[in-house]
Amino acid sequence: MKNKYEPSLKEKAVRLSYERGEIRSIEREFGITRSCLGRWRKKFAYLKLDPKDAIIVELNKKIKDSELTLEILKNGSKYVAQGKIMTKRFIENNSSKYSIVRMCKVLQMSPSAYYQRKKQEISDKQARIILLKEEVLSVYYEFKKTYGYLKITKELQLRGFKVGEGQIKVYMRMLGLRKKAKTRFRITTDSIHNHYVAPNILNRKFTVSEPATAWVSDITYIATIKGFLYLTIVLDLFDRKIVGWSLSDRMSIKETTLPAWQMAVQNRAITKDLIFHSDRGVQYANKMFTKTLDSYKFVRRSMSRKQNHNDNAVSESFFANFKRELINGNKLITREQMRVEVYEYIENWYNKKRRHSFLGYQSIEEFNRVYYTYLNLNRA
């Protein structure tokens, strides 16, 4: 049975169709078909607007159309900036408010791409996994490919991710990520001399409770395009910080151990007994360096036993990491370039940003911040 509509309703529908300049909303509002409205418009043709009114209606339509476009842009632009997945989600969440075709046009996504992406949409769990894998990759390359799953897990946890070591280990395996392997390096120690050799006072006690109570030192070589450079370091066992270092073209005392020591005492004051431990190399046993250490009343000298590198294991560990993280696998560069690289590694990477397993996977700066905060609270 056909629906019967009052003439007044038909006239109203026809008048509105001309005023609005479109018929889709009229169809929905009055519950009629397009063919039905077409018949009514023919019957009530006298209701058609005159040219002047038609122009006004058309201008109003364009204004509303522009306002709607601006509204979609205002609400949807931040989602467009986050990529196609987030753009699709905005369109889907606002389909009851705006037409999908209009949103796709304004946000520059084709309707076919929208519906195809909707079919292929991943679950929230899959999205989290993809995001986490991207973060694992980001941390891996940010930390120079030197972090294994333990350190990457700790870094992600500090960034707010709730992840476990086993989970990150699996993702690293899936992504084919491996930290750089450690390699053996050439020994630079010249222990054949007639200088005084100190006993091993440190005796492998590599953990101390306060800064400037035990320092260890060592020297290694670095190959460049034109010969070697020699890196001397002084490391505080308290926080594993490199408090003093020097980089030289030659192995003389004035270019290796002496400037490294001078930098160390400038950076960290000696206020109580300090054990200074090294190997038996001539750079540490010679009279000039011995006299320098003896001028500090709180300093006690300590040296590794003959042919026993484990007595200075912390220094050797630093050099192993240094070679792995900065040198190995990289092309030879000039001495000038290497000086810049070493400075960046020690001062801006190792002493500030690198996470140390010995410090509970904290950076040296984080560890010291906690230590001195605790110290000040106890003094208050």
Rank of each mutant, 00 (worst) to 15 (best):
G176V: 12
E365P: 06
R173M: 07
N75C: 04
S317L: 08
Q120S: 07
R301Q: 14
E325F: 12
K353Q: 15
A54M: 11
K352G: 05
P259I: 00
V197A: 09
Y141G: 04
G281Q: 00
K241W: 01
M338Q: 07
V282Q: 04
S35I: 01
Q262D: 14
K88L: 07
L47V: 12
Q283E: 06
E316P: 01
N308P: 00
K78M: 10
N267W: 10
F367M: 13
I26C: 03
G21V: 10
M174Y: 14
K323F: 01
N75H: 07
E135F: 02
E11R: 00
D50W: 02
V57C: 15
Q362S: 03
L231I: 09
W261S: 05
N194H: 08
V101F: 13
A285Y: 10
G227I: 08
N328V: 01
R41S: 13
R280K: 08
T183F: 09
I91N: 03
I23N: 04
Q307G: 11
A198Q: 09
N75D: 09
N351Q: 10
I72V: 13
I26Q: 05
L132N: 08
K272I: 01
G160P: 03
A214P: 13
G244I: 05
K4C: 06
I32K: 00
I23F: 00
L375W: 06
G38P: 00
L59Y: 07
L293V: 04
G176N: 14
I201T: 05
S25C: 12
K151I: 01
S357F: 02
E365F: 08
R178W: 03
N75E: 15
A113T: 11
K52N: 14
A127C: 06
D236A: 06
D124S: 09
K12I: 06
N308S: 11
S8N: 13
Y46R: 07
P211E: 07
P199L: 03
E71W: 10
K353Y: 03
T271D: 13
T207G: 02
G21Y: 07
Y140H: 15
P7I: 03
I85E: 04
R117M: 15
W349H: 14
S302Y: 05
I222Q: 02
H356I: 10
M174F: 14
K2I: 13
T188L: 05
R204G: 07
V340D: 06
P211C: 06
V234H: 05
R204S: 11
K179G: 01
E210S: 03
G166V: 05
K162W: 10
P51S: 15
T183Q: 09
A198C: 09
R335I: 09
Y98E: 02
L73W: 10
L73I: 07
L377R: 10
T87P: 01
D294A: 09
L293K: 00
T224I: 03
Y79H: 09
F90P: 05
K323P: 12
S304V: 05
Y141K: 00
F298A: 04
K42V: 04
I130F: 08
Q362H: 07
T232V: 04
K254S: 06
E71C: 12
S25Y: 14
R305T: 02
A81K: 15
K118R: 13
Y296R: 05
F228A: 04
F289Y: 15
L293M: 09
L175E: 12
P259R: 00
K10N: 08
S278F: 00
G227K: 12
K352H: 02
